[in-house]
C-alpha cells in the first residue's frame, strides 16, 4: 500500500478524536479521545519512518507512547480526586478556573 493511504487514515482518526474532545463532557471520554489523537500522530510518524527507511520515527512514536501513559496517569488521578471530593464528573461544571 502507498504511504499516503496510511496518512489519510491517520488524518481521519485525528479528526474523529478532535471532534470527540469538543463534543463529549465526561472527562474520561475526553481522555480517550486524546488517546485517539495521539495514536493518529503515532500512525503518521511510523508511516513516515517507513517512507524514509529510517528508525527515528519509531523512536518518536515510542516517546509519544510514554508521554501518553504519563498523561493518562495524571488525568485519571485528577478524575479520582474529583470523585473523592464529590465534584461533578463533568467538564462543563468545573468552571472555577475560568477567568
Amino acid at each position: 500500500m502507498a504511504i499516503e493511504w496510511y496518512l489519510i487514515v491517520s488524518a481521519l482518526i485525528f479528526s474523529i478524536g478532535a471532534g470527540g474532545v469538543i463534543t463529549r463532557r465526561n472527562p474520561l471520554v475526553v481522555l480517550l479521545c486524546l488517546e485517539l489523537m495521539l495514536n493518529a500522530a503515532n500512525l503518521a510518524l511510523i508511516a513516515f519512518s517507513r517512507m524514509h527507511g529510517n528508525g527515528d520515527g519509531q523512536i518518536f512514536a515510542i516517546i509519544v507512547m510514554v508521554v501518553a501513559a504519563c498523561e493518562v496517569c495524571i488525568g485519571l488521578g485528577v478524575i479520582v480526586a474529583m470523585y473523592r471530593r464529590r465534584l461533578p464528573i463533568d467538564v462543563d461544571e468545573l468552571r472555577e478556573l475560568q477567568g
Binding site: 500500500m1 502507498a2 504511504i3 499516503e4 496518512l7 517507513r50 517512507m51 524514509h52 527507511g53 529510517n54
Partner: peptide, 12 residues
Amino acid sequence: LKALGTEGAPYE
C-alpha cells in the same frame, strides 16, 4: 513529497 505515492524505502 515524491515518495508519498510509493511503498516507501526498500526494505532492509
